[in-house]
Design a protein around this nucleic acid. Structure first.
Length: 585
RNA sequence: GCCCCCAUAGCUCAGCGGAUAGAGCAGGUGCCUUCUAAGCACUUGGUCGCAGGUUCGAGUCCUGCUGGGGGCACCA
């Protein structure tokens, strides 16, 4: 594993500060940052000068003196109020490239191997179509899973399906009364499954609204379901199974990692709900209020000024989702062994999670050492800035959105690259179109509302997945054209680097720090920004540094190495976001 | 009324407490006998919502205000 340049500089400057300024400097962060004025700058002298009541420029000069030029640092100059501008040796940069080259992890060590993260995302509802609202949770969650795994965290995916509730009474009752609807074709496609479910939902709803006797039977069916009646459960299982056929189709299409084993729906926690409620009530954490079992908080009040509770158990004895969430926390901590629990859920649920987490803390279900985070994201809005709806005012089906994106991508790929083998076109259109949708979602900061503008995201310009895929494809194209013996040549570290070469190489060196920052902040858009910067730096390099026609074999070897490492960085980065990196566009 | 999120170029958005605030789109001017022009170079465009504060240093942190979005008792 390779130490990044920033880390090496941190060590060297820290040392020099201690040498020059004594023990007072020992614990001071040298604050090494990439710089516009040099390769890096160290800002750490300024705060130190303040605490020593000394002239920062003088202190900086002493540190600069202690930093004798070596194989890492070629120059160190005092600038501004007391910055240290650091210039790094070309050979050190090339050595970094050589050290990362060919490693599947690009030389980045897995840093978080002791952590177990449970991540709860996607959460579609059984018997219902997935819509744009599920897009962000699914896509962001998937990216976080991949990045957490990359940093060494053990990740347990949990798809908290909405697979329980009163609406099932209606569906199951209708199914029982119309056995012909139960015909379930073997090898049914996802779209067939969801259209059957849609029809079932539509027809049973209509019947429920228009036929009071049916409505009564449906209500009794809810009771039967909760009581575990065999015939009723059978109908429920059928509906769940059919929904999963559809979900897996969508997940497959979206290229996310979720599989059936990750589906742990609300119903899974049913056996624990009574126990949780009793536990909370017995210990006085929850109290009865208007017949409901409630947890109150000093700082949660309604519009009337009265406290608003988290309702663990409804006055009719039924359980709401608060009870399920509490049982889930207990399970995730005690059984799954999580020390980090992430909920990738719409930001509108903020208050709910605040109350659930607080309750779980009081109850000890969430020990102090375990972190629970609501990874909130903003709403998906239409181009008009209002909640995204079809012209008819309906929610937009996720799958129609994806179809549209892929179709758009297909037309573009066809137009831009007529030489592409037509047999490859559908797959390429899929990789480009789905990637564009996912990237558009991931590249904007999570907490903000997000305007879904298909034209923009598949416009294939600027900070989009296609720009990254294009840069990657260009690299692969160069590497394919290389003479066989040149593909794996080493790095000549003593060769001087062109400006575009060193900028690119130094950026590549930050991959590990970037993934680490994403995993800590849970903000995938930082990785997007980084990859975009890499792609831009590569394009700059591409314009000014010919590879196949390099002035010498040694220069070509170095450029090949840069191409390989850039390509691998882009591919690993895109894959970490759940986006394909085709060899060719 | 209370709580959460947001406010940066005409538009959509970046910007880990560091020096002159950046992209893309839109507008203007150039660049394909040369590794993919899905690209590049140059150019036009800013009281970082307002007011205080912390700091050697604030778009970034804190407080208040204004404006926008969302949430706040038995639906999930």
């Amino acid at each position: 594993m390779v130490k990044a340049l920033v880390a090496a500089l941190d060590e060297r400057v820290r040392q020099a500060m201690t040498t020059a300024l004594g023990v007072a400097a020992q614990r001071v962060d040298p604050l090494i940052r990439p710089s516009d004025h040099a390769d890096f700058q160290a800002n750490g002298v300024l705060p130190l000068a303040k605490s020593l009541k000394a002239d920062p420029r003088q202190l900086a000069a002493k540190v600069a003196q202690a930093l004798a030029a070596d194989e890492l640092i070629t120059s160190c100059e005092v600038a501004g109020p007391g910055f240290l501008n650091l210039t790094v040796a070309d050979s050190a940069i090339s050595t970094q490239v050589a050290a990362r080259l060919g490693d599947p992890r690009l030389g980045v060590p897995p840093a978080d191997t002791d952590n177990v993260a449970v991540i709860d995302y996607s959460q579609p509802n059984i018997a219902k179509e997935m819509h744009v609202g599920h897009l962000r949770s699914t896509v962001i969650g998937d990216a976080l899973v991949r990045l957490l795994e990359f940093t060494g965290t053990k990740v347990i995916r949990q798809n908290h399906l909405g697979d329980w509730g009163t609406q099932f009474g209606m569906l199951i009752q209708y199914l029982v009364e119309h056995p012909e609807l139960r015909a379930h074709a073997e090898g049914e496609s996802g779209s067939e499954a969801i259209s059957r479910l849609n029809a079932l939902y539509r027809d049973s709803r209509a019947r429920f609204d228009n036929d009071p006797e049916f409505a009564d039977r449906a209500r009794r069916r809810v009771v039967a379901l909760q009581a575990g009646d065999r015939e009723t459960l059978e109908g429920w299982r059928e509906i769940v199974a059919e929904s999963k056929v559809y979900f897996e189709d969508v997940y497959d299409r979206l290229r996310v990692l979720l599989v059936d084993e990750d589906a742990v729906g609300e119903s899974f926690y049913n056996p624990f709900l009574t126990e949780v409620a009793e536990d909370l009530e017995r210990r006085g954490i929850a109290v009865r209020s208007d017949g409901a079992l409630c947890v109150f908080f000093d700082d949660v009040l309604g519009p009337d000024g009265n406290p608003v509770p988290l309702i663990v158990q409804k006055s009719d004895g039924g359980f709401g989702y608060a009870a399920t969430d509490l049982a889930a926390i207990r399970y995730r901590v005690q059984t799954l062994g999580a020390n980090r629990i992430l909920y990738v859920v719409d930001s509108r649920q903020a208050l709910h999670f605040k109350m659930v987490f607080e309750t779980a803390r009081r109850a000890g279900y969430l020990p102090g050492a375990v972190e629970a985070v609501h990874v909130a994201f903003g709403s998906v809005l239409g181009p008009d800035g209002k909640p995204f709806k079809t012209r008819a005012g309906d929610t937009v089906r996720l799958i129609s959105l994806l179809n549209e994106a892929v179709e758009h991508a297909r037309r573009t790929v066809e137009a831009k690259n007529p030489s592409l083998d037509p047999a490859l076109l559908p797959r390429r259109a899929d990789e480009v179109g789905i990637g564009a949708v996912k990237y558009a979602d991931l590249s904007t900061s999570r907490t903000r509302d997000y305007i879904f503008d298909l034209d923009r995201m598949v416009s294939l310009n600027g900070n989009t997945s296609v720009y990254l895929q294009y840069a990657h494809a260009r690299i692969r194209s160069i590497l394919r054209k290389l003479p066989a013996d040149a593909a794996n040549a080493g790095v000549h570290a003593r060769l001087e680097l062109a400006p575009a070469e060193r900028r690119l190489a130094m950026l590549l060196d930050q991959f590990g720090a970037t993934t680490q920052a994403v995993v800590e902040s849970l903000e995938p858009h930082r990785l997007c920004g980084y990859l975009y910067a890499v792609a831009q730096a590569f394009t700059d390099f591409y314009e000014s540094c010919p590879v196949l026609k390099a002035p010498s074999e040694a220069v070509r070897d170095n450029r090949v190495a840069l191409c390989r490492l850039t390509g691998d960085t882009l591919r690993l980065g895109l894959e970490s976001l759940g986006i394909a990196a085709p060899e060719q566009l």
